[in-house]
């Protein structure tokens, strides 16, 4: 490693030691938590760095890496939606379908190069965004289905089918799920510099390139997150609808 590399690692650990020491002195009960998080991050990033280095040598392995990211995202999001039967599988569909389609599209039209260097971060960002939207939309919808049974039954009693009876809840859940993505897009550059931009700049790209790539990512995220939210919402509605009976079995909360 170069001298600069050693300095980077040393600086990182100095900050972790400072935070951990301060927490310990102030009896925040966080000292070991901070230290543990720092160690975990070190190990995880070192491993990911190594794995990606291997993938650069053997590009087909990128497919396996993206599949692992998707699996992790589906387990994470699906675990939050476990009130609905088969949630992990449906989360995988809601996350994977839009995120992978968008990645494929961006590579196919040549917006980004079809290399692991471009494909892995693109897929990672889109999968991460879709995961957040899936969790947020799904949880909001499950809570609403549970809390608003009276309103749903009132609509059903007036002759609505299940789809119309839950439409206001679906609309609200999808909107909620998209709020962070919209806010992030609106405030970009003003409140924070997003990761893609920072990474490209630090890596030596021109500000113009960094801004352009960041824009592509942000706008793709909007579409991907909206689709992910819609997919998980429609899936949840279908899972709690009793076929033929025009009524729902509200999911238990937990």
């Amino acid at each position: 490693m170069s001298a600069q590399a050693w300095t980077q690692v040393a600086a990182a650990f100095a900050f972790a030691a400072l935070a951990s020491g301060l927490a310990w002195r102030l009896k925040l009960g966080l000292g070991s938590g901070i230290a543990l998080a720092a160690v975990r991050a070190t190990v995880q990033l070192a491993v990911v760095g190594l794995v990606i280095a291997v993938i650069y040598e053997h590009p087909p392995l990128a497919v396996a890496f993206v599949a692992a990211m998707l699996l992790t995202a589906a387990l994470t999001s699906g675990g939050r939606l476990h009130a609905v039967h088969g949630s992990r599988i449906w989360a995988a569909v809601a996350i994977g379908l839009p995120a992978l389609s968008a990645t494929g599209l961006l590579l196919a039209v040549g917006a980004f190069e079809a290399t692991p260097q471009a494909a892995i971060p693109t897929a990672g960002i889109l999968i991460g965004g879709a995961m957040a939207a899936t969790t947020l939309t799904g949880r909001r919808l499950i809570e609403a289905l549970h809390d608003e049974q009276d309103a749903i039954e009132a609509r059903l009693s007036l002759g609505d089918d299940v789809r119309s009876a839950v439409a206001p809840l679906v609309r609200r859940a999808v909107t909620t799920g998209l709020v962070p993505a919209i806010d992030q897009t609106r405030s970009v550059g003003l409140v924070s510099l997003p990761g893609t931009f920072v990474g490209l700049i630090l890596g030596g790209a021109t500000p113009e390139t960094a801004a352009r790539v960041q824009l592509v990512v942000l706008l793709a995220l909007l579409a991907v997150e909206l689709l992910a939210g819609l997919l998980i919402a429609l899936t949840i509605v279908r899972r709690v609808t009793e076929p033929g009976a025009e009524r729902i079995n509200p999911p238990a909360l937990g």
């Binding site: 009276d150 039954e153 009132a154 059903l156 009693s157 025009e246 009524r247």
Partner: peptide, 15 residues
Amino acid sequence: PRELRRRVGLVAQRA
């Protein structure tokens, strides 16, 4: 069900 609910109106306990 939708025909049933047209023929039989239900006014729930909590409006």
